[in-house]
């Protein structure tokens, strides 16, 4: 994964550039309707905060390419997670993503003998393809938009991961998402099924007590308050496959603000439960997305 070591610098540049782009002309860029490309979930796919949606990120429609970059910070009582990355949406059909996560163990790292502030870094390369449907326009049909995706993940702390009982430092998640906007009710609903071996989404490696894929449901419900504000809740079931530490399912309550097609800001409250030796990791989540 050496090729991705340049990622932080180049993304920083992208974010800087994005700051110079005036959002004033935003209404004229890209063929999708506002917010219908979703925001960016933790691993870089277009979706909610925790779970991917079947929508293709960016504001591209047929014959267009859309792109955006994101930065997300999650701060719980004992840990922090920084995640950033970029997304390209092609013709409202294919979505390609890269993301880099850094999970800082803060004081817990010291208690575990890893060193205070010991950090697990994970690089994620993702792809998603829309197979059928249109979440937004097919309002006389029950058929949701359906997409399949994969997220290849590689963690840079293989030795420690093996020491805590994980079997691999890399792995690939596969998922199927169905997303439908019930426009007359101003309600967006997503259901996703993920096939994964990841412990704590890969931050604690892959495989453990067993080396099998686990089938995990995820879902989001979002209510549109206005064209640029949505509120919602998410759920992500997770495997609990490491012998040394219990792993909880994740929830969040979020508010997303999408003032223009160039910018979205998402804040969330997420009770993340037990992470390694610390229970009740209630987290604040902040995510910024800039589009091009």
């Amino acid at each position: 994964m050496r090729a991705y070591s340049l990622l932080p610098a180049s993304l920083g540049g992208l974010l800087l550039l994005a700051g110079l782009v005036s959002p004033a002309a935003a209404n004229d860029t890209g063929g999708k309707l506002l917010a219908t490309g979703g925001v960016t979930q933790l691993e870089g796919a277009a979706g909610g905060g925790l779970t991917p949606w079947a929508v293709i990120g960016g504001y591209d429609t047929a014959g267009q390419v859309g792109a955006n970059a994101f930065y997300t910070r999650v701060q719980s009582g004992s840990y922090s997670l920084n995640s950033y990355g970029a997304l390209v949406g092609i013709a409202n059909r294919v979505e390609l993503t890269v993301a880099r996560q850094s999970f800082n163990t803060e004081d817990v790292g010291g208690l575990l003998g890893l060193g205070k502030g010991y950090t697990f870094n994970q690089t994620i390369v993702g792809a998603k393809v829309r197979l059928a449907g249109d979440a937004v326009l097919e309002q006389d049909s029950w058929l949701p938009q359906i997409a399949v995706g994969a997220q290849y993940k590689h963690n840079d702390q293989g030795a420690v991961l093996r020491a805590i009982g994980a079997r691999h430092d890399g792995g690939t998640d596969f998922y199927v998402s169905a997303t439908k906007l019930f426009l007359a009710q101003s309600l967006l609903v997503d259901a996703t099924v993920r096939f994964t071996k990841a412990n704590q989404i890969g931050i604690l490696g892959f495989g453990g007590k067993d080396d099998s894929y686990h089938v995990e449901p995820e879902g989001s419900v979002a209510y549109l308050l206005s064209r640029d504000f949505l509120i919602g809740a998410e759920y992500r079931k997770k495997p609990d496959n490491l012998a040394i530490a219990h792993e909880d399912d994740w929830y969040d309550l979020f508010v997303a603000w999408v003032p223009t097609k160039n910018i979205s800001v998402t804040v969330a409250f997420a009770p993340l439960g037990n992470i390694v030796i610390r229970d009740h990791q209630n987290a604040a989540y902040l995510s910024l997305q800039v589009g091009f």
Binding site: L137, A184, Q185, S186, L225
Partner: peptide, 12 residues
């Protein structure tokens, strides 16, 4: 906004 969406749902 909710009334807007009801119309758009019919037109979409």
């Amino acid at each position: 906004f909710t009334a807007q969406n009801k119309l758009l749902a019919k037109l979409a």
